[in-house]
Design a protein around this nucleic acid. Sequence first.
DNA 1: ACCGTAACACTAACGGTTAGTTTTTAAGAA
DNA 2: TTCTTAAAAACTAACCGTTAGTGTTACGGT
Lengths: 213, 213
Amino acid sequence: MPEPSGRRERKKAATRQKIADTALRLFLERGYDAVGIRDVAAEADVAVTTLFSHFASKEALVFEQDEDFEQRLTQAVTGRAPHEPLIPALHREIQALVRHCTADGAAPIWRLIDGSPALREYEESMRLRHAESLATAIAADLDLSQTTTACRAVARFAIDAYSLAREAADPEAAADEIFRMIEAAWEAACPSRRARGTVPPGRAGAGRAVTSR
Amino acid sequence: MPEPSGRRERKKAATRQKIADTALRLFLERGYDAVGIRDVAAEADVAVTTLFSHFASKEALVFEQDEDFEQRLTQAVTGRAPHEPLIPALHREIQALVRHCTADGAAPIWRLIDGSPALREYEESMRLRHAESLATAIAADLDLSQTTTACRAVARFAIDAYSLAREAADPEAAADEIFRMIEAAWEAACPSRRARGTVPPGRAGAGRAVTSR
DNA sequence: ACCGTAACACTAACGGTTAGTTTTTAAGAA
DNA sequence: TTCTTAAAAACTAACCGTTAGTGTTACGGT
């Protein structure tokens, strides 16, 4: 089996990068809808088929940068300090991601995205996949001490927090507010676990059995 | 100006219905991807452009039935019994909707949807629009006693509950479980309101000020 | 030096969608 | 009735994202 070694991979990466850069530049210059795939391919000096061998769709060209989002989320769960409670760790990571995408430099790209229904739809769908990965990571981390349903729910809630915060007037405050809600929701789903983190110890374990699944 | 009176509207509605019926039949017979727009138009004996004057996209043909989803949600909020708390009302309606779409008769359509990425994506995007409407209804109902962020968050959570419950092995139990979480989240966001409904009176109003916005 | 194959190019098409234009048909006015 | 207006539907012809099919090149392993 060919062990990867050098030139080929570099050339491939260079082509991919050139396509992504060209695409983003053209989109920002003329608007997403006003630029066709054929325009991008021509300007990047590659064939249309080559473009599609690097990117699955036109929308994927825009979300090149945003690639590690999914991994950062799951890492925040699986790679957190031992005994650190789940929700605050998630909260911290989402805050960082929100800050990252509301930074001044990223503004034009997000204006681009918000301006195109196709891009928004693509993003939503991508986030849902992220939520599924996150749910899996959470379920694995908790090691069967929690329902799959509850894990999938918090995962979705966390993604919701990200996307609502991104749109809010004060993104950081919005994320804080939503995560206060998520913390409460998680405790309600967790009758068998100690309460800890940003919320006072309150009533944990209301004695209701988990019925689903 | 000509006041609309009868035949025209009936014929138009009939055309629309014929298109929708034909489309659904063909999709169920041959599969969504195997049926082209031109096939549907031909079988319904209309021009392609006519089809698109009735439906915005191919996917919209499938979600014809599901039309009143949005209105049922907002109605559940705005039209609930006086003094009935928000979350239980929402819970009840979502339960009804989940039951409706997991009923035996509806199974083939949902198999169709789950089988096509395009349809799933379309549905997600549609649900997000529903969540926005719901958030608006909730905000209006609460009359400024709650943050927009909190309203948008519960609205999303409710939609999440619907779509997670729909996929769960035991849909009703899953919806119950997630709504227990939502109830807790809502109380955490509601320092100024009495606790009531499906959850024991517990600690309401932890004395934390709402900071966002 | 040779072969296998990954990367890319080229042509042509498919399928959803839309613009432009024209024909039909219902609703009201003369 | 007949005429007028306008909505509904038809037809043509394309646009655009995407893919299949078919080479061609050049890198990497032997």
